[in-house]
Design a binder for these strands. Structure first.
Length: 660
DNA sequence: TTAGGGTTAG
């Protein structure tokens, strides 16, 4: 069907060309000076005699440039060189027609990158809309004896320029004119939607594409698998895999890697490993794990905090003769640093250099992040200097890591100064840096400052996202100004941003803090009816009940959490233990801590501080020491200050600093 | 077309 439509479209174009040909023919019947210049250019261009061509450069016209470009359609490199040479002439500026002529030539000769960069320039530099470019291409289509791939190239150029709307407008307009872009262009468009997490739109567009009768290829199926994995629908992704096989489409390593990554992200690492093991069998021995597969598994283990397991994976890589690459090291370095082994991470940096792999921006960013988190400002500065020395270019991650690092270590003025400098240099492209500073201001009760920064975002063309709105809503709620929070919420709703659980939980917390626990309770009920509440929702409400002394409701909710799903976590216990301690109920608090341990949840320094402080007030010294010993034996790391102030002296320690 | 790093809630 598609071929037929293309054929009929071409036929109608040919008729159009026929009448145009008559018109052009009239011109040709009179020898013109243009013909002479054209001839001279062609002869000299073939031998790249640029100096000679300078002599005729004053006679150049756009029509002539297009004509030369078309003449050299079988020597696309020369056509491009000529076009660029003309473009350098000060008095000359290329027309859309000559540019399109060259694009057709480049696409026909499969020089897609050159064609793409011309198309992108038309939109980025010349400010043309995708549909204007499309008109240019359509007008010159037949004249240049082009191929349909030129429209695919335009769709790709649109997505490269970040214009999803433009890409869709091009597809739609071509369709209205009975033209069809190929499945490749659709795949490119669809993958762009996934890249920006527009999953809902992805499914709509996918359905639209199917309704036009396109035959899906392996890449299309991969995109569907990818979308399902992004939606955490792992089983559906696997069933799509079998559907692929049934439709006679053979999966490739990308299909497997996407499912394996999906499994890892859903903490199903065992399943991910099984898939790696069965890749050969499941693909009729056509596919085997590659570096992406291994890196995905390594990342899975690192994110689960199981760095110890990566050793086996690295051994598997050696057996499979798959060389670790920069991504492998970047994943390992971040994994070790995340697990508290920054030393090992730094050793791996050296190791990768010894193996001839240069640390890239990702590696530097990761090291910077963890150094700042450890409070090692000096180390972070050294890493930044090294980055500059080695010409490793910073990116959006670097900027936000730096801003956050400075804020979290108390160098707020410096953070703001850097941020202003980045804005002046126009290098800030995403919302992260603003979000970090807005959040900082909100947490410092400087809501007016935060609102100013929100204004600055708009001035710099940055669209606030859910994190921006979430930070502001939370800030107002914590200040007890729920009404202002609601205003922000409404602003957000106006720009069609759907609230997420972070925002719902912030508002819920706002109600709890202003003692409107009954409102919070009703809000939780409606969230329940939508199946939305998470552990934070319940913990917030429990904290609200505790705040107004309603212990019965707090424990009833605690039981509900235990019954319904495995939602109870360390914060749940800490909230209840804190309440019991404040009421002086140390025995019940200790009991609850023991239940926490039995449930496999390790108390943290907060649990430790609450219980030790409370028992010091209500129990004998022996009981305090006994409680300390119990927790330490269970693996709790004591809070240093609490230990030094209470437990150390009870043990008769003089210099507690050295003992903890 | 797939893998690595930064922001928000209890």
């Amino acid at each position: 069907m598609l071929i037929f439509q293309w054929f009929s479209a071409l036929m109608s174009k040919r008729r159009c060309l026929f009448s145009r040909g008559l018109h052009v023919g009239k011109q040709f019947s009179y020898p013109s000076s243009e013909d002479i210049v054209f001839g001279a250019i062609c002869v000299n261009l073939r031998h790249r005699r640029w100096k000679f061509m300078e002599q005729v450069s004053l006679s150049l016209t756009n029509a002539l440039v297009s004509r030369v470009v078309r003449e050299f359609q079988n020597s696309p490199r020369l056509a491009l060189e000529f076009y660029n040479w003309v473009g350098e002439k000060k008095r000359f500026s290329h027309s859309l027609e000559s540019c399109c002529a060259l694009i057709h030539v480049l696409v026909k000769s499969r020089r897609f990158d050159d064609a793409l960069s011309l198309l992108e320039n038309l939109m980025r530099v010349n400010g043309m809309t995708p549909l204007e470019v499309l008109d240019g291409l359509v007008d010159s289509y037949e004249f240049c004896d082009s191929c349909p791939a030129v429209f695919d190239a335009l769709v790709r150029a649109c997505t490269n320029c970040g214009s999803v709307e433009g890409a869709y407008a091009v597809i739609k307009k071509l369709r209205m004119e009975s033209h069809f872009v190929s499945i490749h262009a659709w795949n490119n468009f669809l993958s762009h939607l996934l890249k920006f997490n527009e999953i809902g739109r992805f499914w709509n567009m996918y359905k639209e594409m199917i309704s036009y009768g396109y035959i899906q290829n392996v890449n299309t199926f991969n995109l569907v698998v990818y979308a399902l994995c992004k939606e955490c629908k792992l089983l559906e992704a696997i069933s799509k895999f079998y559907q692929m096989l049934k439709s006679g489409i053979w999966p490739n390593v990308v299909t497997f890697n996407m499912i394996i990554d999906g499994a890892c992200r859903m903490r199903e690492i065992e399943l991910a490993l099984k898939l790696v093991g069965k890749m050969g069998v499941m693909s009729g021995n056509s596919v085997s794990p590659n570096s992406v597969t291994y890196n995905t598994i390594i990342n899975g283990f690192c994110k689960l905090g199981k760095v110890a397991f990566v050793e086996d994976i690295l051994n598997d890589m050696v057996k499979a003769v798959v060389e670790p690459n920069v991504t492998t090291y970047a994943t390992l370095i971040d994994g070790y640093a995340r697990g508290g082994c920054l030393e090992e991470a730094l050793r791996l940096c050296n190791e990768m250099v010894e193996r001839g792999l240069m640390p890239n921006t990702v590696v530097y960013n990761s090291i910077l992040h963890w150094l700042y988190l450890e409070g090692d400002m000096e180390g972070a500065s050294l890493v930044l200097s090294d980055m500059i020395d080695k010409h490793v270019f910073p990116d959006q991650f670097t900027y936000s890591t730096l801003i956050k690092g400075l804020c979290r270590n108390g160098h707020v003025m410096q953070a703001f100064k850097f941020h202003s400098r980045f804005l002046e240099k126009n290098v800030i492209e995403d919302t992260f840096s603003h979000n970090i500073l807005i959040d900082y201001l909100c947490k410092s009760n400087n809501l007016s400052g935060a609102m100013q920064l929100l204004g600055s975002m708009f001035i710099h063309g940055l669209i606030p996202d859910l994190v921006t709105y979430g930070a502001l809503i939370d800030g107002y709620c914590k200040e007890g100004k729920v009404e202002n929070a609601v205003q922000i919420y409404e602003k957000m709703a106006k720009v069609k941003k759907e609230p997420n659980m972070v925002i719902y939980n912030s508002i819920l917390n706002g109600f709890c803090k202003e003692m409107s626990v009954d409102v919070a309770s009703r809000m939780t009920d409606s969230l329940k009816s939508m199946g939305l509440p998470d552990a934070i929702t319940y913990n917030t409400l429990i904290s609200g009940y505790c705040g107004c002394g309603n212990i019965e409701e707090a424990f009833a909710l605690f039981l509900e959490m235990k019954m319904e799903r495995r939602l109870v976590n360390r914060v749940t216990y800490n909230t209840l233990i804190n309440f019991l301690c404040k009421r002086g109920c140390i025995q019940q608090a200790k009991e609850l801590m023991k239940r926490m341990v039995l449930q496999g949840l390790l108390p943290d320094f907060i649990t430790y501080t609450m219980l030790i402080t409370c028992s010091a007030k209500n129990c004998s010294p022996d009981e305090v020491i006994e409680l300390h010993d119990y927790m330490v034996l269970k693996g709790v790391i004591p809070d240093k200050q609490t230990y030094q102030a209470i437990v150390g002296p009870l043990l008769g320690e003089e210099n507690e600093e050295t003992k903890v």
